[in-house]
Design a binder for these strands. Structure first.
Lengths: 352, 352
DNA sequence: GCAATTTACGGGCACGTGCCCGTAAAGGTA
DNA sequence: TACCTTTACGGGCACGTGCCCGTAAATTGC
């Protein structure tokens, strides 16, 4: 019921080394003002005792506040996907606020590259010790990463990754495998000799993410030696009218499409089209647990949603920075999220 | 970069109330020795300031250690399922050890009611402020819960629930819906007019858990007006030989079984049987991400595993007790885990 | 009315760490 | 030698809370 009473921590080290706690403190934070000799002696004792600083006392005594910037897309009419990571960020924040961590969120417009540039510039102008960012634009992110590296500011990528940049960590899906799983699920309701349609709806052109998903998707069929015809279409406008126009055309050209795979969360737009054009026999699969999609899941228009625990991504992203900046612990560089399969039957229990 | 310098907390309350911090402290911990008048005055100020105690300082100053008992089945040769919740418990422990929380795990033998009774008696003999328990035996758990209530010790159920008892929280699956999802998945590969076999392998007789799963399973078919024949079998021995014997008999009687649904994690035993008897055309679904099952998932013998984030269950269980005992916060009484669908294609990313 | 007890409160140390400030000693410059 | 700078360290307060101990004041008993 009582804690053991052995004197602990810095004091004990100081006692053994015949120095004051201030000197030990200097060694621990490798500040100047300690002779090599005593420094070595103290370090040995630290190792010997396997000293772990008391975070409680440390954070209590310290007046430093650690600020983390979060750069993510704003919730748009098109998608409320980023609500979930934001919830995770808030949850993490509430947990570690006590330790003197504060966060500031910068929302950019996913359809506007300039707003992204603007926000990262704003972050760099501010005084942040860590950054959690969704690297939506490669070129801009690359510049940003270089600047962070220069200033020794750790940054974490969530939801999509740019492996070449030295992020502290990537937290998000394994895209290739997600596509692979999507293909597997598609085959369940797919009738023989029917065509498969891959739909990519996105304003961005350099979407290497979707490529990886598509590769995974196709590789499933290659692995099984199945080579039913796969049609693909890129749609560069995200509004319903444009999507419907393109799809009408594709379905006109290909009468025997049995299944459609949408490479991102805009599957609800396709679902809407399928429903309106009475094509609900087409098996439909897409990504992300957003309310519009869930509605069509409920309707049986969407068969499966593939999800990557967006809330957890936000939570883990902040926690990774916390581990690095406060606890001074290692974090794994690559943290792939589970590929969750959400259906009409289990969605009500899906957390986020 | 610096924390604001406004004097905070107990001191500020004391200053405003014209009393010492000790008196405020007495009110906060409603100890005796404060007149009604000042008590009221202080409470008003506390409310006004919306005072939140600083956990860091509180835990640092306090010498009290909070002990939590965990009562779960040991990992047996039959299943390593409980490894995962234990990992979650350990993870939570590591996180909150700093706050003076210690845990002690009591393993019982899932096939031995007496070992369960023995362990809960041991817990009651010890000095624990909270209990996380898998309520495997109803009668014994009921007695235990009564005793806990008497002593005002909060207890949390994980993995299975006994709703009548006043647990602080239940953390685990919604069994009915899990069965429902199982049925949905089973239909994907099921050919028309084939029979479905429900297999229940368990030594325990009063397994109301399995009943709920089976109800959910059957209700899926009822909802859809499908009434393909469903055969069920109870097997009271868990070793392979016994299971194989029973199954041989059932498959002999029913030549046209197209799918099998196992109501718990022993699906690997059935998988083994199906493989050995060259019946892998039978669609097979069961529960839990344990290594034996994953092996058969990899083999294509098991089609789907339904999982309930066992590691998370352990983690959340401890955290619920921590919230109650240390933070003094509310926790939700019912915390259903997601019904995760695990396949050959996505299992490698499943966290636990 | 006086001693004994109880009530109601304040003073102040402790928890382990961070960090400011002071200072003796060593070294450098004229 | 006198004065200044640098190095190497110790003293000690602060963070916000818990809680022991001491003590006036109020209450009780006779």
């Amino acid at each position: 019921m009582k804690k053991e009473n052995t004197s602990q921590g810095v004091k004990e080290i100081a006692r053994r080394a015949n120095v004051s706690t201030a000197t030990v403190d200097r060694v621990l934070h490798n500040r100047t003002g300690v002779s090599e000799k005593t420094k070595k002696r103290i370090n040995e004792i630290i190792k010997e005792l396997d000293y772990q600083p008391n975070l409680l006392a440390s954070r209590l005594a310290s007046k430093k506040i650690i600020s983390i910037a979060i750069v993510i897309p704003s919730v748009s009419e098109e998608t409320d996907f980023w609500e979930a990571p934001l919830r995770g960020v808030r949850r993490a924040e509430a947990e570690i606020k006590q330790y003197g961590v504060s966060t500031q969120v910068f929302f950019f417009d996913l359809n506007d590259k300039d707003s992204f540039s603007g926000k990262i510039a704003e972050v760099l102008r501010g005084d942040f010790q860590g950054v959690l960012i969704s690297p939506s634009y490669i070129e801009e992110t690359t510049k940003f990463a270089a600047e962070c590296e220069l200033r020794k500011i750790p940054f974490v990528f969530i939801d999509s990754n740019i492996p070449e940049l030295h992020s502290l960590s990537y937290i998000g899906p394994h895209l290739f495998k997600s596509g692979y799983v999507g293909a597997k699920l598609l085959t369940y309701r797919l009738e023989r000799d029917k065509k498969i349609l891959i739909i990519n709806i996105s304003k961005e052109i350099d979407n290497f993410n979707y490529q990886k998903i598509e590769e995974g998707f196709r590789s499933y069929f290659q692995d099984r030696g199945q080579s039913g015809e796969i049609v693909r279409i890129d749609i560069r406008e995200t509004d319903y009218q444009s999507v419907a126009r393109h799809l009408t055309y594709v379905f006109h050209l290909n009468k025997d499409i049995g299944a459609a795979f949408v490479t991102n969360s805009r599957v609800h737009t396709v679902a809407s089209f399928l429903k309106n054009s009475h094509r609900t026999h087409v098996s439909l699969i897409g990504f992300d647990f957003i309310s519009e999609n869930v509605a069509y899941l409920e309707n049986n228009v969407i068969d499966f949603l593939i999800c990557h625990r967006p809330e957890d991504q936000g939570y883990r992203g902040i926690m990774a920075l916390y581990q690095t900046l406060v606890v001074n612990a290692q974090v794994s560089k690559l943290s792939y999220m589970p590929i969750d399969i959400v259906t009409k039957e289990n969605y009500e229990f899906y957390h986020n």
